[in-house]
Structures are given as C-alpha cells and as structure tokens.
Computed example of a mutant assay.
Amino acid sequence: MRTTRRSTMDTITITKDNFQTEVLKTKGTVLIDFWASWCGPCRMLSPIVDQVAEEHPDVKVGKINVDEEPELASQFDVMSIPMLVVFKDGQKVNESIGLVPKEKIVELIQ
C-alpha cells in the first residue's frame, strides 16, 4: 500500500511483510518514520518528512504505524515517537527521537 502525496514521489507504508524487501534489501539510503495517528508530534513531523522525500528522490522514505506494526516497533526499541531511523544498504546508521526540524532530518540522511 502507498499513501498518496501531491508530488510524483511516494512515501511507502512499511509493514512486517515488506520490511525485508523495502528496507533491508535496499541499496542506498532509507529513512523510516515510526509514528501513530494519535501522536500530535507525529502529525506535525509527517509533512516535514514528506518534504524531505520530495527534495531527496535518491532516498527511499517509509512510514511505520507503531499501532499496526508492534513487532517492528519492538525490533527497533521504539519507546518514544515520532522516531526516525536511517538505513544505508540495509544497516541502521542513524536515528532521531521527537519532533525535529527539516535540517536535522537532512543531516541524518547525509
């Protein structure tokens, strides 16, 4: 499933079923946004993550709803959301917890 955005880039909905293919087997950079619909800071961060996705087409951007994917949230020790995790060539290389400005997200994916 993909969420629709205004641009031609899509943010991928990541689930336990597609995590291996979309994240671990991807060559290059993947930014994952762990979020929940009831989380105010998550709702504020989401459009910023979408902007980063639009401005960095070389980075795959995925979103994981922690309520729908508790196994993935547990696997990455998600205790607070929003939480951003960066993978490069299938390896976790960076993370950020809480509402952060766009500049910080860009730094994370560099």
Rank of each mutant, 00 (worst) to 15 (best):
L31D: 00
R43C: 02
S37Y: 04
I32Q: 00
P47N: 06
I64S: 09
I81C: 13
I32M: 01
D67R: 06
A53S: 15
K88N: 14
P47L: 08
A53W: 07
K88Y: 06
V49W: 12
N65A: 04
T26V: 11
V85Y: 09
Q91D: 14
K63C: 03
W38C: 04
D89G: 11
T26P: 00
P57S: 06
L45C: 08
E55S: 15
K88M: 06
W35G: 09
M83S: 14
K25G: 01
P57G: 04
G28I: 07
K27R: 09
P82D: 11
H56S: 12
F34K: 00
K27H: 08
S37Q: 12
M44Q: 15
D50S: 13
W38D: 03
T26E: 13
E71F: 04
V86W: 04
D89M: 10
L24M: 12
A73V: 02
L24A: 07
D89H: 10
E54T: 08
G62L: 09
N65Q: 05
V23E: 01
A53L: 10
V23H: 01
K63G: 05
G28P: 05
R43L: 14
E69L: 04
Q91M: 14
P47E: 07
F34I: 01
L24D: 04
D77W: 04
Q75F: 05
T29D: 08
S80W: 03
V61A: 01
D77S: 14
L84N: 11
I81V: 12
L84W: 10
E71G: 03
S46F: 11
V61H: 01
E54S: 09
K92R: 13
A53E: 12
D67L: 10
I48L: 11
N65H: 06
V78Y: 00
M79P: 07
K63Y: 03
Q75C: 03
S74H: 04
D50E: 15
P82Y: 13
F87Q: 12
H56F: 08
L24H: 03
P41G: 05
I64C: 06
I48S: 09
M79E: 13
K88R: 14
F76A: 03
F76P: 02
P57Y: 01
M79T: 15
G90L: 06
W35L: 09
